[in-house]
Computed example of a mutant assay.
Amino acid sequence: MSILIKRILFIFFLIFLIIQVIQPVRNIDYGQVSSSDLSKVYKVPKNVESILKTSCYDCHSNSTEYPVYAYIQPLSFFLENHIKEGKKELNFSEWGLYSKRKQSNKLEAVENQIKQGKMPFSSYLYLHHDAKLSDEKIKEVVNWIESTRAESKK
């Protein structure tokens, strides 16, 4: 290998090491469930709450359980951006801050997304197999959403 190629590789390696020092702020609530969390606004059965926490909360709440690879740059930047975008679209931790109309629309959107298999993302499922929604889990969540939406219209 020529000296020029070795120097270029060495520079790339140094840059890679240096960017490891730069870590974004983590999306961690340290076990605190906010008063505006979905589970505080609606009566959520334990099985549905467990499904949502396993399959949705990492990207759609103020509490993410980070895998080991999340501390390696540039993957960390990608993950934090993905979480930020997910929370902007839907944040279960801030559910109570949404208007009743927005809550109803978000529930309908969640129902449609999981029925169509659009959520969770397949890229997420690749490394988080436990987040995959079986037909039974989808049915449990959909049934809860439908009953909750019907109840809130009364």
Rank of each mutant, 00 (worst) to 15 (best):
residue 1 M to E: 07
residue 2 S to G: 15
residue 2 S to Q: 07
residue 3 I to R: 11
residue 3 I to S: 10
residue 6 K to T: 04
residue 7 R to N: 12
residue 9 L to S: 14
residue 10 F to I: 04
residue 10 F to E: 06
residue 11 I to W: 04
residue 13 F to Y: 06
residue 14 L to I: 04
residue 14 L to E: 01
residue 15 I to A: 14
residue 17 L to T: 12
residue 18 I to Q: 02
residue 18 I to V: 15
residue 19 I to N: 08
residue 20 Q to T: 03
residue 21 V to D: 03
residue 22 I to M: 12
residue 23 Q to V: 06
residue 23 Q to T: 05
residue 26 R to K: 07
residue 28 I to E: 11
residue 28 I to F: 09
residue 30 Y to L: 11
residue 30 Y to P: 07
residue 32 Q to D: 02
residue 33 V to E: 10
residue 33 V to C: 10
residue 34 S to C: 04
residue 34 S to Y: 06
residue 36 S to C: 09
residue 36 S to E: 11
residue 37 D to Y: 07
residue 41 V to N: 00
residue 41 V to E: 02
residue 43 K to A: 09
residue 43 K to N: 13
residue 43 K to P: 04
residue 44 V to W: 04
residue 45 P to V: 02
residue 47 N to P: 01
residue 48 V to C: 05
residue 48 V to H: 02
residue 48 V to T: 03
residue 52 L to C: 08
residue 52 L to F: 06
residue 53 K to F: 09
residue 53 K to A: 07
residue 57 Y to E: 10
residue 58 D to M: 00
residue 59 C to Q: 01
residue 59 C to S: 09
residue 59 C to P: 03
residue 60 H to Y: 09
residue 61 S to T: 05
residue 62 N to S: 09
residue 63 S to R: 10
residue 63 S to L: 14
residue 64 T to N: 11
residue 66 Y to K: 01
residue 66 Y to I: 02
residue 69 Y to P: 08
residue 69 Y to V: 14
residue 71 Y to A: 01
residue 72 I to T: 08
residue 73 Q to P: 07
residue 74 P to S: 00
residue 76 S to P: 02
residue 76 S to E: 02
residue 77 F to G: 08
residue 77 F to L: 12
residue 78 F to R: 08
residue 82 H to C: 04
residue 83 I to V: 04
residue 88 K to C: 00
residue 89 E to I: 10
residue 90 L to P: 00
residue 92 F to W: 11
residue 92 F to A: 12
residue 92 F to P: 00
residue 93 S to Q: 05
residue 94 E to H: 04
residue 94 E to N: 12
residue 95 W to P: 01
residue 96 G to N: 08
residue 96 G to P: 02
residue 96 G to C: 04
residue 97 L to Y: 03
residue 98 Y to H: 05
residue 98 Y to A: 12
residue 98 Y to P: 09
residue 99 S to Q: 15
residue 101 R to M: 06
residue 101 R to E: 14
residue 103 Q to M: 12
residue 104 S to C: 13
residue 104 S to V: 04
residue 105 N to Q: 12
residue 105 N to M: 13
residue 106 K to Q: 06
residue 107 L to G: 09
residue 107 L to E: 01
residue 110 V to K: 01
residue 110 V to Q: 02
residue 110 V to W: 00
residue 111 E to F: 01
residue 113 Q to Y: 09
residue 115 K to N: 15
residue 115 K to C: 08
residue 115 K to V: 03
residue 116 Q to A: 14
residue 118 K to S: 15
residue 118 K to A: 08
residue 119 M to W: 10
residue 119 M to Q: 09
residue 120 P to K: 00
residue 122 S to R: 11
residue 122 S to E: 13
residue 124 Y to P: 06
residue 125 L to F: 05
residue 125 L to R: 14
residue 125 L to V: 11
residue 126 Y to V: 10
residue 126 Y to G: 13
residue 126 Y to A: 14
residue 127 L to V: 14
residue 131 A to G: 13
residue 133 L to D: 03
residue 133 L to N: 05
residue 134 S to I: 15
residue 136 E to P: 02
residue 136 E to L: 10
residue 136 E to M: 08
residue 137 K to M: 05
residue 138 I to F: 00
residue 140 E to K: 13
residue 141 V to G: 02
residue 142 V to Y: 06
residue 142 V to D: 00
residue 143 N to Y: 09
residue 143 N to E: 13
residue 143 N to A: 13
residue 145 I to K: 01
residue 145 I to Q: 02
residue 148 T to K: 08
residue 149 R to F: 02
residue 149 R to H: 00
residue 152 S to T: 05
residue 153 K to N: 02
residue 153 K to Y: 01
residue 154 K to P: 01
residue 154 K to H: 10
